[in-house]
C-alpha cells in the first residue's frame, strides 16, 4: 500500500509541475540546417556575453521552421525562424491567419554552394552551368534536337572534362539548397545550352520552360540526398567519380577530403561570393516575431548581436566558419535596432 501511495503522490507532483504556467526565459529558434551552425555560434557567444541563457537552436529545415514560426504568438511558439530562402507569400498569409503579423526579416549574409569531388578522384576542376545541365538535365540538346539525356560520361559533351562516369549527389527537394541549385545552375545551364529556347520553341511559355529545365534525369545518375552534407560526403567517399553539392562552410571544414571545382571559371570563396563573381550563392535569413520582443527576455539583443560587426562582420566568427558577410550589414543593423517589420516598408 505504501508504494502505491508513493506512486500516486509522485504522479501528482509531476502533474503539478506540468500544469504550472511557464515563464519561458530562453529564446527558441528553429529552422534551416544551413543556418544552424551560424545560429549556434551566435547563441553560444550570446550566452557567454549576456546575462540571458543560451538560446535553443533546433534544425529541421527552412520550411518546417517557418511553419512552426507561423503557428501563432505565445510562449509555446518559437521566437525566431532560420531560413535559407526568403519567406513565401503563402507563409506570410498563414502567419497572418494565426495572428503573427509583425515579422522582422533579417538577412545575415550569403552562403555559397559548391561542387566538390573526392580529392584523389578524376580532375573535376572547372564546371560551367551548361556542363552540369548536360550531365544532369532531364532533356538535353544533341545535334540541335532536344532529346532525353543519355550522356554517360563527362567528356561526351565537353572534351575538357575527364573521361569519367556521370554520378552526382544533389540535395533532395526538401532542402532550401535544391532551389538554388535549380535556379542558379540548372536553369542557367539550360539557357546556355539552348535547351530553354527549344522548350519555348516547342510551344511552352517561359514559366513552363523554366520548370522543364529544372527537371533532373531519373536514370540514377543524379542521386537526391535527403540527409545532410555528411551523407553526401560519405557517398562521395565511396565513389571516386561522384560529384557532390555542398555548402561552402561544409567544404571548408573538409578540405582534406574534398576538392572544389570552379564555376564559370571562378573559385568559390568568401571573397568571390561577396563580390558577386561566383554565381551560385544565396542569402540567408532569420525571421523574428516582433510580438515576442519584450515578452521573451533578450530576444532583441539576440537579433542585434547576430548582425553585429563582432559576429557577422567580415572578420567575425561567422565569416571564419564560412558565412559570406553582407556588404550592407550596417543597414540590416539599423533595421533591427528600429525593429523594422516586413510590412512597414522594407
Amino acid at each position: 500500500m505504501k508504494s502505491v501511495k508513493l506512486a500516486v503522490s509522485a504522479i501528482a507532483i509531476v502533474a503539478a509541475t506540468g500544469t504550472t504556467a511557464f515563464a519561458r526565459d530562453n529564446i527558441q529558434v528553429a529552422g534551416s540546417s544551413t543556418v544552424l551552425p551560424y545560429a549556434s555560434i551566435v547563441a553560444e557567444a550570446f550566452g557567454e556575453n549576456f546575462d540571458y541563457p543560451t538560446p535553443v537552436v533546433e534544425s529541421g529545415g527552412s520550411s518546417s521552421g517557418l511553419k512552426r514560426f507561423c503557428e501563432g504568438v505565445g510562449e509555446n511558439t518559437i521566437d525566431v525562424a532560420n531560413a535559407s530562402r526568403k519567406i513565401k507569400d503563402k507563409e506570410i498569409a498563414t502567419c497572418a491567419e494565426n495572428g503573427v503579423t509583425d515579422i522582422m526579416e533579417v538577412r545575415i549574409g550569403y552562403d555559397g554552394i559548391v561542387f566538390a569531388s573526392q580529392k584523389d578522384g578524376p580532375a573535376f576542376d572547372a564546371f560551367d552551368p551548361s556542363d552540369i545541365y548536360n550531365a544532369l538535365g532531364a532533356k538535353v540538346m544533341k545535334d540541335g534536337q532536344l532529346v532525353d539525356n543519355t550522356y554517360a560520361k563527362w567528356n561526351e559533351f565537353n572534351a575538357a572534362l575527364p573521361d569519367a562516369d556521370i554520378i552526382a549527389f544533389i540535395p533532395g527537394t526538401k532542402h532550401g539548397t535544391r532551389e538554388v541549385f535549380e535556379e542558379k545552375v540548372l536553369e542557367a545551364g539550360c539557357e546556355a545550352t539552348g535547351a530553354m529556347e527549344a522548350y519555348v520553341a516547342s510551344g511552352m511559355d517561359e514559366k513552363a520552360a523554366a520548370k522543364e529545365c529544372m527537371k533532373v534525369r531519373t536514370d540514377g545518375k543524379a542521386v537526391d540526398i535527403d540527409g545532410d552534407y555528411t551523407e553526401t560526403l560519405a557517398r562521395i567517399g565511396s565513389n571516386p567519380n561522384g560529384i557532390g553539392v555542398f555548402g561552402l562552410a561544409f567544404y571548408e571544414n573538409n578540405t582534406d577530403k574534398l576538392k572544389v571545382a570552379t564555376m564559370s571559371g571562378v573559385t568559390p570563396s568568401t571573397e568571390t561570393i561577396a563580390s558577386g563573381d561566383y554565381p551560385v550563392s544565396r542569402p540567408l535569413f532569420f525571421y523574428v516575431k516582433k510580438a515576442h520582443i519584450g515578452q521573451i527576455p533578450g530576444l532583441k539583443e539576440y537579433a542585434e548581436f547576430f548582425v553585429s560587426d563582432d559576429m557577422a562582420g567580415a572578420d567575425g566568427p561567422l565569416a571564419q566558419y564560412g558565412l559570406v558577410s553582407d556588404p550592407e550589414l550596417a543597414q540590416t543593423q539599423e533595421a533591427v535596432a528600429a525593429e523594422t517589420t516586413m510590412n512597414s516598408g522594407m
Binding site: 528553429a30 544552424l36 549556434s40 550566452g47 535553443v56 537552436v57 533546433e58 529541421g60
Partner: peptide, 8 residues
C-alpha cells in the same frame, strides 16, 4: 524539439 543545439 530535443535535437539540435540545445544541451547548452
Amino acid at each position: 524539439g530535443m535535437v539540435g543545439f540545445i544541451a547548452t
